[in-house]
């Protein structure tokens, strides 16, 4: 059974590496991310959002759904710690 899990893990890892090999080189100026999205943010973000900080404009305006998700993740982590670790009742005698 152990070997089955090992084989499954290796197969999944191999598939992921195989998929990552096809990605454009890091920093490649002709990759889609650098030739479509970035110029739009650099050229238009100030006119569209009236905010000088491009990073915040992307995080809080263009991709604010994503940031809402991130905040919810932090919230969920706090709630999980609360549910697992906090004592809600005073134990008698201790």
């Amino acid at each position: 059974m152990k070997f089955l899990y090992l084989a499954l893990t290796l197969a999944t890892g191999g598939l992921l590496i195989f998929g990552a090999l096809d990605m454009p080189a890091w920093g490649d100026p002709n990759s889609p991310a650098n030739s479509h999205v970035s110029p739009r943010y650099i050229e238009q973000s100030f006119h569209e959002t009236e905010v000088p900080n491009m990073v915040t404009a992307v995080l809080a305006d263009y991709r604010s759904f994503d940031t809402l998700g991130e905040t919810t993740v932090v919230f969920t982590a706090a709630i999980c710690c609360l549910l697992l670790l906090r004592r809600f009742r005073k134990e008698s005698g201790s």
Binding site: E48, T49, E50, V51, T56, A57, A60, D61, S64, T67, L68, E70, T71, V74, F75, A77, A78, C81, L82, L84, L85, R86, R87
Partner: peptide, 30 residues
């Protein structure tokens, strides 16, 4: 747009602050 971003940044700040301190307290109280 700037004010909307400010509002959500304040929301994020409140949540992150309270979550960090609350996790810290929960872990150490255990």
């Amino acid at each position: 747009r700037g004010m909307g971003m400010l509002a959500i940044e304040i929301g994020v700040g409140i949540t992150v602050m309270a979550a960090m301190v609350s996790i810290f307290h929960d872990l150490l109280d255990f």
